[in-house]
Design a protein around this nucleic acid. Structure first.
Lengths: 151, 151
DNA sequence: TGAATTTAATCTCACATGAGAGTATCTTAC
DNA sequence: GTAAGATACTCTCATGTGAGATTAAATTCA
């Protein structure tokens, strides 16, 4: 574990590298569960999942929450509105930023995906005991906090 | 930590979601260190780092190691060859798959980036004690193994 | 209040990515 | 040994992404 800070770099221990690889694999494998079956892109799924969990939000808030570019969010929202999976309501505090929320259909769709998601993750972490998982999540959030300091 | 498998999904605890967010932030923040200063794209950096650590490899092997698409790898390799940062040697076992390795210049470039990378990660994990980091890496590799089973 | 600045969202455009075809080479099976 | 299939890589093309301009609305400040 002692790494020579001067001349070598072990990619397996280097987080921007190995975490990206693992995250890509996860996202790819999990997205198979909703991509074709529910005809959702990754950004669309992310919008739905956030609205489901946190309720009414603006596009900007979704960008910040889900680490999405404004253009990507704008397109995802537009398409979900067309499909009537989400609803836009005028924001009394700011006419530019309308309040988005799930429609009945959007909610129904989300309710179909949630059990699949939970099952999928249960399989993923089946090699870990609950203490180890808890510890992992905890460390993850420390790293996340650190990254957000510099922003 | 007990999640209702039926109806709710907590995104903060959902790995394909939160890990992707964190990995994106990491990669983005770290890549600032080499993008402009050394004029490298992310795929180019990944090729260099892998050749530095593992020595002579084919493009296909780099794809597998670094979770890269074949086109992305092909373009990164082409550009690094043009810049004389890597060298292609004919593979006696397979004329299609030439053996790639770092040139002297490529090595020099890598040696400049390594200390920056190690410093960067040291900052990132400065909130963790070494035991916690070790445990985190260990769990990460379990997750990685699990994902690779299904491939 | 009005002018200047900031902000949310969309639009435009350049670019990177990944799927699929094409080419060359290697492997397998007969 | 040869034909059929698989594989490594490149190329082409359609698509998604993100940077920057634009527009409309909100905020700040004089």
């Amino acid at each position: 574990m002692t790494t020579d800070k001067q001349t070598t770099l072990d990619l397996k221990q280097f987080l921007p590298y190995s975490l990206t690889n693992i995250a890509m694999q996860m996202s790819e494998q999990f997205s198979e569960l909703y991509q074709q079956q529910f005809d959702l892109t990754v950004p669309q799924w992310r919008v739905i999942a956030n609205l489901a969990q946190y309720g009414e939000r603006t596009a900007k808030e979704l960008c910040d929450m889900a680490q999405m570019d404004k253009s990507t969010a704008s397109r995802a929202v537009k398409s979900l509105l067309t499909r009537n999976l989400i609803i836009a309501k005028e924001n009394p505090k700011d006419k530019r930023a309308s309040l988005l929320s799930l429609s009945v259909e959007g909610n129904r769709l989300h309710e179909q995906i949630v059990p699949l998601a939970n099952e999928w993750q249960a399989g993923l972490v089946s090699d870990l005991d609950s203490q180890e998982l808890k510890q992992f999540m905890n460390t993850l959030s420390k790293l996340s906090n650190h990254l957000n300091k510099n922003v």
